[in-house]
Design a protein around this nucleic acid. Structure first.
Length: 553
RNA sequence: GCUGUUUUAGCUCAGUCGGCAGAGCACUUCCUUGGUAAGGAAGAGGUCGAGCGUUCGAAUCGCUUAAACAGCUCCA
Protein backbone atom coordinates (compact mmCIF):
# COMPACT_ATOMS: atom_id res chain seq x y z
CA UNK A 1 0.00 0.00 0.00
CA UNK A 2 1.08 3.54 -0.66
CA UNK A 3 0.01 6.83 0.85
CA UNK A 4 -1.23 9.49 -1.54
CA UNK A 5 -1.49 13.08 -0.34
CA UNK A 6 -4.39 14.82 -2.05
CA UNK A 7 -5.68 18.38 -2.09
CA UNK A 8 -6.04 19.90 1.38
CA UNK A 9 -3.41 17.50 2.75
CA UNK A 10 -5.91 14.62 2.79
CA UNK A 11 -3.97 11.34 2.84
CA UNK A 12 -5.52 8.22 1.33
CA UNK A 13 -4.14 4.73 1.00
CA UNK A 14 -4.07 2.85 -2.29
CA UNK A 15 -2.48 -0.27 -3.61
CA UNK A 16 0.84 0.42 -5.28
CA UNK A 17 0.43 0.69 -9.03
CA UNK A 18 -2.94 2.43 -8.89
CA UNK A 19 -3.18 5.02 -11.64
CA UNK A 20 -4.04 8.68 -11.19
CA UNK A 21 -7.36 8.24 -12.98
CA UNK A 22 -8.42 5.52 -10.51
CA UNK A 23 -7.62 7.79 -7.60
CA UNK A 24 -9.77 10.48 -9.20
CA UNK A 25 -12.58 7.95 -9.63
CA UNK A 26 -12.34 6.95 -5.96
CA UNK A 27 -12.76 10.60 -4.96
CA UNK A 28 -15.83 11.01 -7.13
CA UNK A 29 -17.16 10.37 -10.61
CA UNK A 30 -17.58 14.11 -11.15
CA UNK A 31 -13.89 14.72 -10.63
CA UNK A 32 -13.01 11.67 -12.75
CA UNK A 33 -15.11 12.95 -15.60
CA UNK A 34 -13.61 16.41 -15.53
CA UNK A 35 -10.05 15.23 -14.97
CA UNK A 36 -7.67 16.19 -17.79
CA UNK A 37 -4.25 15.38 -16.37
CA UNK A 38 -2.52 14.89 -13.05
CA UNK A 39 0.37 16.34 -11.13
CA UNK A 40 2.52 13.89 -9.17
CA UNK A 41 4.98 15.51 -6.77
CA UNK A 42 4.64 18.68 -8.80
CA UNK A 43 5.23 17.09 -12.22
CA UNK A 44 2.45 17.16 -14.81
CA UNK A 45 1.72 13.62 -15.98
CA UNK A 46 -0.88 11.58 -17.79
CA UNK A 47 -3.89 10.27 -15.83
CA UNK A 48 -2.78 6.76 -16.79
CA UNK A 49 0.47 7.10 -14.82
CA UNK A 50 0.73 4.41 -12.14
CA UNK A 51 1.56 5.55 -8.61
CA UNK A 52 4.29 3.31 -7.28
CA UNK A 53 5.27 5.01 -4.04
CA UNK A 54 4.09 7.58 -1.52
CA UNK A 55 3.44 10.88 -3.27
CA UNK A 56 1.35 14.01 -3.51
CA UNK A 57 -1.25 13.98 -6.26
CA UNK A 58 -3.24 16.79 -7.83
CA UNK A 59 -5.99 15.95 -10.26
CA UNK A 60 -5.94 18.66 -12.94
CA UNK A 61 -9.15 19.73 -14.66
CA UNK A 62 -9.91 22.20 -17.43
CA UNK A 63 -9.61 24.94 -14.80
CA UNK A 64 -5.87 24.27 -14.51
CA UNK A 65 -3.47 25.52 -17.17
CA UNK A 66 -1.89 22.09 -17.61
CA UNK A 67 -5.34 20.52 -17.65
CA UNK A 68 -6.39 22.83 -20.47
CA UNK A 69 -3.26 21.91 -22.40
CA UNK A 70 -4.04 18.18 -22.13
CA UNK A 71 -7.63 18.87 -23.16
CA UNK A 72 -6.60 20.89 -26.21
CA UNK A 73 -3.88 18.44 -27.10
CA UNK A 74 -6.48 15.69 -27.15
CA UNK A 75 -8.71 17.93 -29.26
CA UNK A 76 -5.83 18.26 -31.75
CA UNK A 77 -5.66 14.45 -31.97
CA UNK A 78 -9.39 14.36 -32.62
CA UNK A 79 -8.84 16.89 -35.40
CA UNK A 80 -6.09 14.73 -36.88
CA UNK A 81 -8.35 11.68 -36.69
CA UNK A 82 -11.12 13.61 -38.44
CA UNK A 83 -8.69 14.70 -41.16
CA UNK A 84 -7.58 11.09 -41.64
CA UNK A 85 -11.24 10.07 -41.97
CA UNK A 86 -12.11 12.71 -44.58
CA UNK A 87 -8.70 13.12 -46.25
CA UNK A 88 -6.96 9.74 -45.94
CA UNK A 89 -3.99 10.92 -48.03
CA UNK A 90 -3.08 13.65 -45.55
CA UNK A 91 0.29 13.22 -43.86
CA UNK A 92 0.57 14.17 -40.22
CA UNK A 93 3.12 16.65 -38.89
CA UNK A 94 2.66 18.01 -35.38
CA UNK A 95 -0.33 19.17 -33.35
CA UNK A 96 0.32 20.86 -30.02
CA UNK A 97 -1.86 22.79 -27.60
CA UNK A 98 -1.23 26.53 -27.69
CA UNK A 99 -2.57 29.54 -25.79
CA UNK A 100 -6.33 29.44 -26.17
CA UNK A 101 -6.56 26.24 -28.21
CA UNK A 102 -4.57 24.00 -30.50
CA UNK A 103 -3.40 23.44 -34.04
CA UNK A 104 -2.38 20.53 -36.19
CA UNK A 105 -0.17 20.64 -39.30
CA UNK A 106 -0.92 18.40 -42.27
CA UNK A 107 0.69 17.81 -45.62
CA UNK A 108 -2.16 17.77 -48.12
CA UNK A 109 -2.34 18.38 -51.87
CA UNK A 110 -5.00 21.07 -51.63
CA UNK A 111 -5.30 23.56 -48.73
CA UNK A 112 -8.36 23.22 -46.53
CA UNK A 113 -11.30 25.42 -47.45
CA UNK A 114 -13.89 26.85 -45.06
CA UNK A 115 -16.26 24.09 -46.19
CA UNK A 116 -13.60 21.52 -45.33
CA UNK A 117 -13.28 23.04 -41.86
CA UNK A 118 -17.04 22.82 -41.31
CA UNK A 119 -17.02 19.18 -42.40
CA UNK A 120 -14.04 18.44 -40.14
CA UNK A 121 -15.76 20.14 -37.23
CA UNK A 122 -18.79 17.90 -37.72
CA UNK A 123 -16.56 14.82 -37.93
CA UNK A 124 -14.77 15.87 -34.72
CA UNK A 125 -18.07 16.18 -32.91
CA UNK A 126 -18.95 12.68 -34.07
CA UNK A 127 -15.64 11.32 -32.75
CA UNK A 128 -16.14 13.12 -29.45
CA UNK A 129 -19.65 11.78 -29.10
CA UNK A 130 -18.44 8.21 -29.59
CA UNK A 131 -16.29 8.65 -26.46
CA UNK A 132 -13.41 6.70 -27.94
CA UNK A 133 -10.91 5.72 -25.22
CA UNK A 134 -7.28 6.77 -25.67
CA UNK A 135 -4.62 4.25 -24.87
CA UNK A 136 -0.95 4.90 -24.28
CA UNK A 137 1.78 2.58 -25.39
CA UNK A 138 5.52 2.62 -25.24
CA UNK A 139 7.35 0.92 -28.06
CA UNK A 140 10.91 0.39 -29.27
CA UNK A 141 12.23 2.54 -32.12
CA UNK A 142 11.91 -0.38 -34.55
CA UNK A 143 8.28 -0.96 -33.66
CA UNK A 144 7.70 2.78 -33.99
CA UNK A 145 9.25 2.85 -37.47
CA UNK A 146 6.86 0.09 -38.53
CA UNK A 147 3.86 1.93 -37.10
CA UNK A 148 4.73 5.21 -38.82
CA UNK A 149 6.07 3.81 -42.09
CA UNK A 150 3.64 5.90 -44.15
CA UNK A 151 4.18 9.11 -42.18
CA UNK A 152 7.40 10.79 -43.34
CA UNK A 153 7.18 13.66 -40.87
CA UNK A 154 6.56 11.37 -37.93
CA UNK A 155 9.50 9.21 -39.03
CA UNK A 156 11.74 12.26 -38.98
CA UNK A 157 10.60 13.11 -35.46
CA UNK A 158 10.88 9.62 -34.11
CA UNK A 159 14.44 9.25 -35.42
CA UNK A 160 15.37 12.30 -33.37
CA UNK A 161 13.85 10.83 -30.24
CA UNK A 162 15.33 7.42 -30.99
CA UNK A 163 18.77 8.99 -31.35
CA UNK A 164 18.50 10.03 -27.71
CA UNK A 165 18.01 6.36 -26.83
CA UNK A 166 14.46 6.77 -25.56
CA UNK A 167 11.56 4.43 -26.09
CA UNK A 168 8.75 6.07 -28.00
CA UNK A 169 5.27 6.82 -26.76
CA UNK A 170 2.15 6.49 -28.88
CA UNK A 171 -1.45 7.35 -28.13
CA UNK A 172 -4.16 5.43 -29.89
CA UNK A 173 -7.83 6.29 -30.19
CA UNK A 174 -9.88 3.90 -32.28
CA UNK A 175 -8.47 3.88 -35.81
CA UNK A 176 -6.06 6.71 -35.09
CA UNK A 177 -2.52 6.41 -33.82
CA UNK A 178 -0.08 9.23 -33.11
CA UNK A 179 3.48 9.51 -31.89
CA UNK A 180 3.00 11.76 -28.87
CA UNK A 181 4.34 12.22 -25.37
CA UNK A 182 0.98 13.25 -23.92
CA UNK A 183 -0.60 13.77 -21.48
CA UNK A 184 -4.07 13.15 -22.82
CA UNK A 185 -7.66 12.78 -21.64
CA UNK A 186 -8.96 9.28 -20.91
CA UNK A 187 -11.35 9.38 -23.85
CA UNK A 188 -12.72 11.77 -26.47
CA UNK A 189 -16.10 12.37 -24.86
CA UNK A 190 -15.23 15.51 -22.89
CA UNK A 191 -14.41 17.51 -26.02
CA UNK A 192 -17.99 18.63 -26.50
CA UNK A 193 -17.66 22.08 -28.02
CA UNK A 194 -15.21 22.53 -30.89
CA UNK A 195 -14.49 25.39 -33.25
CA UNK A 196 -11.98 25.30 -36.06
CA UNK A 197 -11.02 28.92 -36.38
CA UNK A 198 -8.74 29.09 -39.41
CA UNK A 199 -6.61 27.21 -41.90
CA UNK A 200 -3.28 28.72 -42.90
CA UNK A 201 0.08 27.75 -44.29
CA UNK A 202 2.95 26.89 -41.99
CA UNK A 203 6.45 25.58 -42.61
CA UNK A 204 7.57 22.15 -41.47
CA UNK A 205 9.66 22.69 -38.36
CA UNK A 206 9.25 26.43 -38.75
CA UNK A 207 11.81 26.53 -41.56
CA UNK A 208 10.90 28.56 -44.63
CA UNK A 209 13.18 26.36 -46.76
CA UNK A 210 11.17 23.27 -45.86
CA UNK A 211 7.76 22.07 -47.02
CA UNK A 212 4.71 24.28 -46.60
CA UNK A 213 2.09 22.45 -44.58
CA UNK A 214 -1.55 23.27 -43.98
CA UNK A 215 -2.20 24.24 -40.41
CA UNK A 216 -5.66 24.14 -38.89
CA UNK A 217 -6.21 26.24 -35.78
CA UNK A 218 -9.01 25.44 -33.41
CA UNK A 219 -10.24 25.65 -29.89
CA UNK A 220 -12.37 23.39 -27.75
CA UNK A 221 -14.19 23.43 -24.44
CA UNK A 222 -16.05 21.00 -22.19
CA UNK A 223 -19.24 23.09 -22.54
CA UNK A 224 -20.63 24.95 -25.53
CA UNK A 225 -21.40 27.98 -23.34
CA UNK A 226 -17.68 28.24 -22.56
CA UNK A 227 -16.86 28.11 -26.27
CA UNK A 228 -19.36 30.86 -27.03
CA UNK A 229 -17.96 32.99 -24.24
CA UNK A 230 -14.43 32.45 -25.56
CA UNK A 231 -15.39 33.35 -29.14
CA UNK A 232 -17.28 36.44 -27.95
CA UNK A 233 -14.20 37.54 -26.01
CA UNK A 234 -12.04 37.24 -29.13
CA UNK A 235 -14.60 39.18 -31.17
CA UNK A 236 -14.59 41.85 -28.48
CA UNK A 237 -10.80 42.09 -28.53
CA UNK A 238 -10.87 42.55 -32.31
CA UNK A 239 -13.06 45.60 -31.85
CA UNK A 240 -10.05 47.21 -30.16
CA UNK A 241 -7.75 46.34 -33.07
CA UNK A 242 -5.75 49.53 -33.72
CA UNK A 243 -5.64 48.64 -37.38
CA UNK A 244 -9.41 49.02 -37.49
CA UNK A 245 -10.14 51.83 -35.03
CA UNK A 246 -6.94 53.68 -35.89
CA UNK A 247 -8.18 53.99 -39.46
CA UNK A 248 -11.81 54.66 -38.51
CA UNK A 249 -10.87 57.37 -36.02
CA UNK A 250 -8.44 58.83 -38.56
CA UNK A 251 -5.18 58.33 -36.71
CA UNK A 252 -3.53 56.84 -39.78
CA UNK A 253 -4.14 55.49 -43.23
CA UNK A 254 -2.20 53.77 -45.98
CA UNK A 255 -1.94 54.36 -49.70
CA UNK A 256 -1.36 51.89 -52.51
CA UNK A 257 0.85 54.32 -54.35
CA UNK A 258 3.05 55.04 -51.33
CA UNK A 259 3.68 51.44 -50.46
CA UNK A 260 3.45 48.65 -47.98
CA UNK A 261 4.51 49.27 -44.41
CA UNK A 262 4.56 53.03 -44.96
CA UNK A 263 1.62 54.35 -42.96
CA UNK A 264 0.48 57.95 -43.32
CA UNK A 265 -0.05 59.57 -39.93
CA UNK A 266 -3.14 61.73 -40.15
CA UNK A 267 -3.38 64.90 -38.02
CA UNK A 268 -4.67 63.01 -34.97
CA UNK A 269 -1.99 60.33 -35.08
CA UNK A 270 0.74 62.85 -35.81
CA UNK A 271 -0.39 64.95 -32.83
CA UNK A 272 -0.22 62.01 -30.42
CA UNK A 273 3.27 61.11 -31.60
CA UNK A 274 4.36 64.73 -31.34
CA UNK A 275 3.17 64.83 -27.72
CA UNK A 276 4.91 61.54 -26.91
CA UNK A 277 8.14 62.68 -28.56
CA UNK A 278 8.22 65.97 -26.66
CA UNK A 279 7.56 64.11 -23.44
CA UNK A 280 10.34 61.61 -24.11
CA UNK A 281 12.89 64.17 -25.23
CA UNK A 282 12.23 66.41 -22.21
CA UNK A 283 12.37 63.49 -19.80
CA UNK A 284 15.62 62.25 -21.30
CA UNK A 285 17.15 65.69 -21.02
CA UNK A 286 16.23 65.73 -17.32
CA UNK A 287 18.03 62.40 -17.00
CA UNK A 288 21.26 63.64 -18.49
CA UNK A 289 20.84 62.62 -22.11
CA UNK A 290 22.40 64.68 -24.88
CA UNK A 291 20.21 65.07 -27.94
CA UNK A 292 21.71 64.21 -31.34
CA UNK A 293 20.45 64.41 -34.90
CA UNK A 294 22.32 62.14 -37.28
CA UNK A 295 21.83 61.33 -41.00
CA UNK A 296 19.20 58.93 -42.26
CA UNK A 297 21.64 57.24 -44.62
CA UNK A 298 25.26 56.42 -45.04
CA UNK A 299 27.72 54.80 -47.40
CA UNK A 300 28.03 51.05 -47.30
CA UNK A 301 31.42 51.50 -45.61
CA UNK A 302 29.75 52.40 -42.33
CA UNK A 303 27.59 49.28 -42.33
CA UNK A 304 30.62 47.15 -43.13
CA UNK A 305 32.28 48.31 -39.92
CA UNK A 306 29.15 47.78 -37.85
CA UNK A 307 28.50 44.31 -39.28
CA UNK A 308 25.12 45.22 -40.75
CA UNK A 309 26.46 44.74 -44.26
CA UNK A 310 27.16 41.09 -43.48
CA UNK A 311 24.30 40.39 -41.09
CA UNK A 312 21.49 42.61 -42.22
CA UNK A 313 21.93 43.51 -45.87
CA UNK A 314 18.61 41.94 -46.93
CA UNK A 315 16.83 44.14 -44.41
CA UNK A 316 18.16 47.42 -45.78
CA UNK A 317 17.02 49.75 -48.52
CA UNK A 318 20.11 50.18 -50.68
CA UNK A 319 20.83 52.77 -53.37
CA UNK A 320 23.17 51.56 -56.04
CA UNK A 321 24.59 48.15 -56.73
CA UNK A 322 25.72 46.62 -53.45
CA UNK A 323 28.05 44.26 -55.30
CA UNK A 324 29.81 46.95 -57.36
CA UNK A 325 32.75 48.13 -55.26
CA UNK A 326 33.91 50.62 -57.89
CA UNK A 327 30.91 52.88 -57.36
CA UNK A 328 29.50 54.55 -54.29
CA UNK A 329 26.66 52.77 -52.63
CA UNK A 330 24.39 54.16 -49.94
CA UNK A 331 21.80 52.61 -47.68
CA UNK A 332 19.04 54.02 -45.51
CA UNK A 333 19.73 53.32 -41.90
CA UNK A 334 18.03 50.36 -40.24
CA UNK A 335 19.34 51.49 -36.82
CA UNK A 336 21.10 54.48 -35.29
CA UNK A 337 24.04 52.86 -33.54
CA UNK A 338 27.00 53.55 -35.86
CA UNK A 339 25.72 57.05 -36.59
CA UNK A 340 25.53 58.01 -32.96
CA UNK A 341 28.96 56.50 -32.29
CA UNK A 342 30.41 59.19 -34.52
CA UNK A 343 29.34 61.68 -31.86
CA UNK A 344 31.57 59.96 -29.35
CA UNK A 345 34.34 59.63 -31.93
CA UNK A 346 34.24 63.38 -32.62
CA UNK A 347 37.20 63.94 -30.31
CA UNK A 348 39.40 62.16 -27.82
CA UNK A 349 37.42 61.13 -24.75
CA UNK A 350 38.43 60.84 -21.12
CA UNK A 351 36.99 58.59 -18.41
CA UNK A 352 35.56 61.84 -17.09
CA UNK A 353 33.32 62.08 -20.17
CA UNK A 354 31.59 58.85 -19.23
CA UNK A 355 28.89 57.87 -18.96
CA UNK A 356 27.90 59.60 -22.16
CA UNK A 357 24.17 59.27 -22.69
CA UNK A 358 23.08 60.03 -26.23
CA UNK A 359 19.44 60.23 -27.23
CA UNK A 360 17.85 60.72 -30.62
CA UNK A 361 14.35 60.69 -32.03
CA UNK A 362 15.43 58.48 -34.84
CA UNK A 363 13.67 57.45 -38.03
CA UNK A 364 14.68 54.04 -39.31
CA UNK A 365 14.05 52.05 -42.48
CA UNK A 366 13.86 48.29 -42.61
CA UNK A 367 12.94 46.34 -45.70
CA UNK A 368 10.66 43.84 -44.02
CA UNK A 369 9.29 40.95 -46.07
CA UNK A 370 6.01 41.81 -47.73
CA UNK A 371 3.95 39.54 -45.48
CA UNK A 372 5.29 41.06 -42.28
CA UNK A 373 3.54 44.38 -42.11
CA UNK A 374 0.83 44.90 -39.54
CA UNK A 375 -0.92 48.24 -39.15
CA UNK A 376 1.33 50.54 -37.14
CA UNK A 377 2.93 47.68 -35.22
CA UNK A 378 5.22 46.37 -37.95
CA UNK A 379 6.19 48.87 -40.63
CA UNK A 380 9.08 49.67 -42.98
CA UNK A 381 9.68 53.21 -41.75
CA UNK A 382 9.33 54.13 -38.13
CA UNK A 383 10.66 56.45 -35.48
CA UNK A 384 12.08 55.31 -32.18
CA UNK A 385 13.37 56.95 -29.04
CA UNK A 386 16.83 55.61 -29.70
CA UNK A 387 19.70 55.99 -27.29
CA UNK A 388 23.22 54.79 -26.70
CA UNK A 389 25.07 54.99 -23.44
CA UNK A 390 28.83 54.78 -23.65
CA UNK A 391 29.99 53.67 -20.24
CA UNK A 392 32.97 52.45 -18.25
CA UNK A 393 32.73 48.87 -16.95
CA UNK A 394 32.19 50.13 -13.40
CA UNK A 395 29.22 52.20 -14.60
CA UNK A 396 27.47 49.42 -16.50
CA UNK A 397 25.11 48.22 -13.79
CA UNK A 398 24.16 51.69 -12.60
CA UNK A 399 23.46 52.86 -16.15
CA UNK A 400 21.53 49.72 -17.04
CA UNK A 401 19.46 50.32 -13.94
CA UNK A 402 18.85 53.88 -15.11
CA UNK A 403 17.65 52.64 -18.49
CA UNK A 404 15.28 50.19 -16.87
CA UNK A 405 13.96 52.88 -14.52
CA UNK A 406 13.40 55.19 -17.48
CA UNK A 407 11.59 52.45 -19.42
CA UNK A 408 9.37 51.70 -16.44
CA UNK A 409 8.65 55.37 -15.90
CA UNK A 410 7.60 55.69 -19.55
CA UNK A 411 5.39 52.62 -19.42
CA UNK A 412 3.74 53.72 -16.21
CA UNK A 413 3.14 57.19 -17.60
CA UNK A 414 1.37 55.94 -20.71
CA UNK A 415 -0.32 53.14 -18.77
CA UNK A 416 1.13 50.09 -20.51
CA UNK A 417 3.34 48.83 -17.67
CA UNK A 418 0.85 46.24 -16.42
CA UNK A 419 0.59 44.68 -19.90
CA UNK A 420 4.29 44.09 -20.38
CA UNK A 421 6.53 41.12 -19.70
CA UNK A 422 10.30 40.88 -19.69
CA UNK A 423 12.42 38.65 -21.89
CA UNK A 424 16.12 38.05 -21.50
CA UNK A 425 17.15 37.44 -25.11
CA UNK A 426 20.27 35.35 -25.52
CA UNK A 427 22.18 34.09 -28.51
CA UNK A 428 22.14 30.54 -29.79
CA UNK A 429 25.69 29.17 -29.78
CA UNK A 430 24.62 26.64 -32.46
CA UNK A 431 23.86 29.44 -34.90
CA UNK A 432 27.07 31.36 -34.47
CA UNK A 433 26.96 32.52 -38.12
CA UNK A 434 24.14 34.86 -37.11
CA UNK A 435 26.17 36.51 -34.40
CA UNK A 436 29.36 38.52 -34.11
CA UNK A 437 31.99 37.79 -31.52
CA UNK A 438 33.29 34.75 -29.70
CA UNK A 439 31.60 32.41 -27.23
CA UNK A 440 33.74 33.94 -24.48
CA UNK A 441 32.52 37.43 -25.31
CA UNK A 442 28.91 36.26 -25.37
CA UNK A 443 29.27 34.43 -22.08
CA UNK A 444 30.73 37.55 -20.55
CA UNK A 445 27.99 39.83 -21.86
CA UNK A 446 25.19 37.44 -20.95
CA UNK A 447 26.58 36.71 -17.49
CA UNK A 448 26.95 40.41 -16.82
CA UNK A 449 23.39 41.04 -17.92
CA UNK A 450 22.06 38.13 -15.92
CA UNK A 451 23.87 39.38 -12.82
CA UNK A 452 22.37 42.83 -13.28
CA UNK A 453 18.84 41.48 -13.89
CA UNK A 454 18.97 39.15 -10.90
CA UNK A 455 20.42 41.90 -8.76
CA UNK A 456 17.58 44.22 -9.78
CA UNK A 457 15.05 41.46 -9.15
CA UNK A 458 13.63 41.62 -12.68
CA UNK A 459 11.31 38.71 -13.44
CA UNK A 460 11.99 37.50 -16.94
CA UNK A 461 11.68 34.64 -19.36
CA UNK A 462 14.69 33.53 -21.35
CA UNK A 463 14.56 33.72 -25.15
CA UNK A 464 17.19 31.62 -26.92
CA UNK A 465 18.30 32.89 -30.34
CA UNK A 466 16.54 36.21 -29.73
CA UNK A 467 19.65 38.32 -29.16
CA UNK A 468 20.92 41.12 -31.36
CA UNK A 469 23.87 40.06 -33.50
CA UNK A 470 26.15 42.14 -31.27
CA UNK A 471 24.83 41.32 -27.82
CA UNK A 472 22.13 40.10 -25.42
CA UNK A 473 18.95 42.09 -24.82
CA UNK A 474 16.38 42.74 -22.18
CA UNK A 475 13.21 43.01 -24.24
CA UNK A 476 10.05 44.44 -22.77
CA UNK A 477 7.31 42.55 -24.57
CA UNK A 478 3.66 43.36 -25.11
CA UNK A 479 0.80 41.53 -26.81
CA UNK A 480 -1.63 42.97 -29.32
CA UNK A 481 -5.36 42.17 -29.42
CA UNK A 482 -4.64 38.98 -31.37
CA UNK A 483 -2.26 37.81 -28.68
CA UNK A 484 0.78 38.26 -30.88
CA UNK A 485 3.78 39.46 -28.94
CA UNK A 486 6.10 42.25 -29.99
CA UNK A 487 8.99 44.10 -28.44
CA UNK A 488 8.04 47.53 -27.17
CA UNK A 489 11.25 48.52 -25.40
CA UNK A 490 14.71 47.02 -25.52
CA UNK A 491 17.85 47.46 -23.45
CA UNK A 492 20.96 45.80 -24.85
CA UNK A 493 24.51 45.32 -23.67
CA UNK A 494 27.07 45.51 -26.44
CA UNK A 495 30.67 44.52 -25.83
CA UNK A 496 31.64 44.25 -29.48
CA UNK A 497 30.86 47.32 -31.52
CA UNK A 498 32.93 49.84 -29.57
CA UNK A 499 36.07 47.94 -30.53
CA UNK A 500 35.00 47.68 -34.19
CA UNK A 501 34.54 51.43 -34.36
CA UNK A 502 37.75 52.17 -32.49
CA UNK A 503 35.90 53.89 -29.66
CA UNK A 504 38.25 54.47 -26.75
CA UNK A 505 38.58 56.65 -23.71
CA UNK A 506 41.62 57.48 -21.66
CA UNK A 507 41.49 55.87 -18.23
CA UNK A 508 42.76 57.25 -14.93
CA UNK A 509 46.04 55.51 -15.67
CA UNK A 510 46.45 57.37 -18.93
CA UNK A 511 45.91 54.19 -20.95
CA UNK A 512 43.29 53.80 -23.69
CA UNK A 513 40.26 51.69 -22.68
CA UNK A 514 37.33 50.28 -24.62
CA UNK A 515 33.94 51.30 -23.24
CA UNK A 516 30.80 49.22 -23.03
CA UNK A 517 27.76 50.40 -24.91
CA UNK A 518 24.16 50.12 -23.83
CA UNK A 519 21.66 50.33 -26.70
CA UNK A 520 18.22 51.20 -25.47
CA UNK A 521 14.88 52.70 -26.27
CA UNK A 522 12.91 54.59 -23.69
CA UNK A 523 9.45 54.24 -25.24
CA UNK A 524 10.25 52.11 -28.23
CA UNK A 525 8.86 52.88 -31.62
CA UNK A 526 6.29 55.66 -31.58
CA UNK A 527 4.09 54.09 -34.24
CA UNK A 528 3.98 50.81 -32.33
CA UNK A 529 3.35 52.59 -29.03
CA UNK A 530 0.47 54.52 -30.59
CA UNK A 531 -0.99 51.25 -31.89
CA UNK A 532 -0.85 49.59 -28.50
CA UNK A 533 -2.29 52.66 -26.77
CA UNK A 534 -5.21 52.65 -29.20
CA UNK A 535 -5.83 48.99 -28.44
CA UNK A 536 -5.44 49.43 -24.70
CA UNK A 537 -7.82 52.39 -24.50
CA UNK A 538 -10.08 51.29 -27.39
CA UNK A 539 -9.35 54.63 -29.08
CA UNK A 540 -10.16 56.84 -26.06
CA UNK A 541 -6.61 57.91 -25.21
CA UNK A 542 -5.69 59.49 -21.86
CA UNK A 543 -6.45 63.21 -21.95
CA UNK A 544 -2.82 64.40 -21.99
CA UNK A 545 -2.07 62.62 -25.26
CA UNK A 546 -5.54 62.80 -26.73
CA UNK A 547 -5.54 64.69 -30.03
CA UNK A 548 -8.98 66.09 -29.24
CA UNK A 549 -9.27 66.78 -25.54
CA UNK A 550 -12.41 68.86 -25.47
CA UNK A 551 -15.07 69.73 -28.02
CA UNK A 552 -17.44 72.64 -27.44
CA UNK A 553 -20.83 71.89 -28.93
C1' G B 1 8.99 35.42 -49.29
C1' C B 2 5.02 31.21 -48.21
C1' U B 3 -0.60 29.63 -47.34
C1' G B 4 -5.48 31.51 -47.38
C1' U B 5 -9.13 35.49 -47.65
C1' U B 6 -10.35 40.27 -49.44
C1' U B 7 -10.48 44.95 -52.82
C1' U B 8 -17.56 48.02 -55.81
C1' A B 9 -19.39 55.89 -53.86
C1' G B 10 -15.90 59.51 -48.42
C1' C B 11 -17.51 55.09 -44.82
C1' U B 12 -20.07 50.13 -44.13
C1' C B 13 -21.58 46.86 -47.63
C1' A B 14 -25.26 44.32 -51.54
C1' G B 15 -24.80 43.06 -56.65
C1' U B 16 -27.93 35.65 -58.38
C1' C B 17 -26.69 32.55 -64.79
C1' G B 18 -21.73 37.36 -68.05
C1' G B 19 -26.67 41.69 -70.24
C1' C B 20 -27.85 49.81 -68.56
C1' A B 21 -23.85 50.50 -61.23
C1' G B 22 -27.12 49.77 -56.08
C1' A B 23 -28.53 50.63 -50.52
C1' G B 24 -27.72 52.85 -45.65
C1' C B 25 -24.70 56.49 -43.36
C1' A B 26 -21.86 60.89 -44.64
C1' C B 27 -21.81 65.26 -48.15
C1' U B 28 -24.54 69.79 -50.94
C1' U B 29 -29.16 72.86 -51.44
C1' C B 30 -34.01 73.87 -49.69
C1' C B 31 -38.02 73.03 -46.15
C1' U B 32 -39.20 71.59 -41.14
C1' U B 33 -37.72 71.24 -35.84
C1' G B 34 -36.10 73.47 -28.10
C1' G B 35 -35.18 66.71 -26.88
C1' U B 36 -29.95 63.28 -27.47
C1' A B 37 -27.33 59.37 -34.37
C1' A B 38 -33.96 64.79 -35.59
C1' G B 39 -37.79 64.62 -39.96
C1' G B 40 -38.95 65.69 -45.31
C1' A B 41 -37.63 66.92 -50.56
C1' A B 42 -34.07 67.36 -54.25
C1' G B 43 -28.94 66.71 -55.73
C1' A B 44 -23.93 65.48 -56.31
C1' G B 45 -20.68 61.50 -55.83
C1' G B 46 -17.99 55.29 -59.54
C1' U B 47 -11.85 53.84 -64.60
C1' C B 48 -16.14 48.13 -59.72
C1' G B 49 -7.63 48.18 -57.00
C1' A B 50 -4.46 48.14 -61.82
C1' G B 51 -3.01 45.71 -66.51
C1' C B 52 -3.71 41.98 -70.23
C1' G B 53 -6.97 38.37 -72.20
C1' U B 54 -11.74 35.35 -73.34
C1' U B 55 -16.57 37.17 -75.23
C1' C B 56 -21.34 40.37 -79.43
C1' G B 57 -21.07 42.02 -74.33
C1' A B 58 -17.00 41.52 -68.13
C1' A B 59 -17.84 44.32 -61.41
C1' U B 60 -18.96 39.00 -62.64
C1' C B 61 -14.73 34.20 -66.30
C1' G B 62 -8.95 33.43 -67.02
C1' C B 63 -3.85 35.19 -66.38
C1' U B 64 -0.49 38.88 -64.37
C1' U B 65 0.18 42.62 -60.77
C1' A B 66 -0.55 45.99 -56.43
C1' A B 67 -2.55 46.70 -51.76
C1' A B 68 -5.30 45.24 -47.15
C1' C B 69 -6.31 41.28 -43.44
C1' A B 70 -5.10 36.48 -40.63
C1' G B 71 -1.38 32.75 -40.01
C1' C B 72 3.83 30.95 -41.09
C1' U B 73 8.91 32.45 -41.58
C1' C B 74 11.57 36.77 -40.22
C1' C B 75 12.07 40.81 -36.66
C1' A B 76 19.53 44.12 -35.71
Amino acid sequence: MIQVTLKGDVVKEFEAGVCAADVAKSIGMGLYKSACAAKINGNVVDLRTPLTENCTLDILTFDDEAGKKAFWHTASHILAQAVKHLFPAAKLAIGPAIDGGFYYDFDVKKPFSNEDLAALEAEMKKIAKEGIPLTRKEVTPDEARALEKDEPYKLELLEEHAAKGDNLIFYEQGDFLDLCAGPHLMDTSAVKAVKLTSATGAYWRGDSKKATLCRIYGTAFPKSSMLEEHLAKIEDAKKRDHNKIGRELEFFTTSDVIGQGLPILLPKGARVIQLLQRFVEDEEQRRGYLLTKTPLMAKRDLYKISGHWDHYQDGMFIFGDPADETKECYALRPMTCPFQYQVFLNRKRSYRDLPMRLGETSTLFRNEDSGEMHGLIRVRQFTISEGHLIVRPDQLEEEFKGCLALAKFMLETVGLEEDCSYRFSKWDPNRSDKYEGTAEQWDEAQNTMQKILDHLGVKYEVGIDEAAFYGPKLDIQIKNVYGKEDTLITIQIDMLLAKKFGMEYTGTDGQPKTPYIIHRTSLGCYERTLALLLEKYAGALPVWISPEQVRVV
